[in-house]
């Protein structure tokens, strides 16, 4: 019972925690004027993880901190910065958590090796299943 009350409280917690009354940052919910730049920004934002919400990208989040990060991403793209440089800058500050695109590191290489390993395994196991085409 106590536990369920807690869960209910947690569910209710998000809106009860006060939010800033400041309006959203200039580019939080407004697109860049140049469609090519906006497309770059949109692709980057879709692959950056919101710092406070549960598993959403900043482009899918209503959290204010996500809005501020969208603002920053758009401003820097507008200033001509490369999307991957912005991603690297953020990873430099928050670690790999912030990016939905895992990098190949000593920790994550199995993610990238897995597809190849699976195919190799399938080949080894299936090799003997086939008859010779002459059979």
């Amino acid at each position: 019972m106590m536990r369920s009350l807690l869960i209910a409280a947690l569910l209710a917690a998000a809106p009860v925690l006060a939010d800033s009354t400041l309006p959203p940052a200039p580019y939080a919910n407004v697109q860049l004027e140049d469609p090519a730049q906006e497309a770059k920004a949109a692709a980057l934002m879709a692959s950056l993880r919101c710092l406070q919400c549960q598993g959403q990208s900043i482009s899918d989040s209503d959290a204010q901190i996500a809005g501020d990060l969208r603002n920053q991403v758009r401003l820097r793209i507008k200033a001509g910065e490369d999307p991957e440089a912005i991603r690297a800058w953020l990873i430099d500050r928050y670690g790999d958590y912030v990016s939905y695109a895992p990098r190949v590191t000593t920790l994550t290489w199995p993610l990238f090796a897995a597809p190849l390993a699976l195919l190799a395994l399938a080949f080894v196991l299936l090799r003997r299943r086939f008859t010779r085409s002459a059979a």
Partner: peptide, 19 residues
Amino acid sequence: LYPLLAEALGAQVSVGPPY
């Protein structure tokens, strides 16, 4: 599961659409 595995090793990783 990879984020869990990484957590067990003391690191934070996010795996999303780009992967």
